[in-house]
């Protein structure tokens, strides 16, 4: 009875769902890497793998555990992941855990900065657009949003980098990357352009969602009630209209976080930011099985956790959800 009560609680249910998703992600990552032609041995040795004698090959397969059935391989891998062993890079010998401990905070910093840029731009433009729908101002806002949706990050990023470096002689990203704690001033300069590029892409869908949510909320009875008590326009827009539109905006922002992690792969590469996206990319280029497998898993886990956090935020934003 108590168990059923606990399991019935939406929060607990949501946590269980997240766990299931994570398990699914682990399986998917594992299967995908096995489904790609070639294996760890060909990846490591390249064309020379063809020169291996069957005995040598068998020895290597035993070393990597490739002679075991797939299910056993999966359990072995999952077991080591759960105990904090994410494998190591063949080339540098560094453990993936250590690499991730360096790169994940950088990507998270970039993500947070991009979110700030995206929300300020997106919600700001939406409020301007929605305040006078179908005006020139609205059309301009929507055109910029469309541009944000259509221009890919690699193009905008390269263009921004080229223009800043060529014409302004400004390219902080050419220098050795500075961690936030070591050199905050340089770090923020290095983060500025990538955050703008990612934030611009993020602002577009946020703007479109926020605009329609604001327009809809404006027509609701409670907004009329607020006007009926004499609430002045600015207070009305912020405390009633924007507050009422916050749930869809939050939903869109949470969904876009996935885009942020994916977009980070490209943007980090362009701006030489040693984040987790770059770690995957280098892993793929250098055919580092352990690095790719574990890093993709880390990204997936981050995504699931962010979605979970979004769901928890609903409870803060909407008192009606809090009651359930």
């Amino acid at each position: 009875m108590i168990l059923r009560g606990t399991l019935g609680h939406p929060l607990v249910r949501r946590l269980l769902e997240a766990l299931f998703t994570l398990a699914g992600v682990a399986v998917l990552v594992f299967v995908m890497l096995r489904a790609i032609p070639g294996d760890q041995i060909t990846a490591t040795l390249g064309t020379e793998a063809a020169a291996l004698t069957p005995a040598q090959r068998a020895a290597l397969e035993t070393y990597y555990g490739l002679d075991q059935p797939l299910v056993v391989q999966f359990w072995t891998w999952l077991g080591s992941v759960l105990t904090g062993n994410l494998g190591a890079s063949e080339r540098s010998g560094r453990s993936v855990l250590e690499m991730t401990a360096n790169s994940l905070p950088i990507t998270l910093e970039l993500a947070v900065l991009s979110l700030v840029v995206g929300l300020v731009l997106g919600v700001g433009a939406a409020m301007l657009s929605a305040s006078r729908p179908d005006s020139a101002r609205d059309a301009a806002g929507q055109a910029v949003a469309l541009a944000g949706l259509s221009v890919p990050a690699f193009l905008l990023g390269s263009a921004l980098l080229a223009v800043a470096a060529r014409f302004l002689g400004y390219n902080p990203n050419a220098e050795q990357f500075a961690p936030l704690v070591a050199d905050p001033a340089l770090n923020l300069q290095q983060m500025l352009m990538p955050a703008l590029v990612l934030g611009f892409g993020l602002a577009a869908p946020i703007m479109r969602t926020a605009r329609s949510a604001l327009l809809e909320t404006r027509t609701l009875d409670f907004v009329r009630t607020a006007r009926g008590k004499g609430v002045p326009p600015r207070r009305l827009q912020v405390r009633h209209v924007l507050r009422g539109a916050l749930v869809p905006i939050l939903t869109m922002t949470g969904l876009q976080f996935g885009y942020l992690l994916g977009g980070a792969v490209v943007v980090e590469q362009i701006f030489s930011v040693p984040g987790i996206g770059r770690q995957v990319l280098i892993g793929i280029q250098q055919k580092e099985y352990a690095v790719v497998q574990s890093t993709v898993l880390v990204i997936a886990v981050t995504f699931v956790l962010v979605n979970l956090a979004t769901d928890l935020l609903y409870r803060v934003v909407d008192p009606r959800v809090r009651a359930t």
């Binding site: 009875d221 409670f222 009329r224 507050r243 008192p319």
Partner: peptide, 16 residues
Amino acid sequence: IAMVYQDPMTSLNPFM
């Protein structure tokens, strides 16, 4: 001038 509205289920701000 003040007004009392038809439907109290929708005339109050649910977030406040």
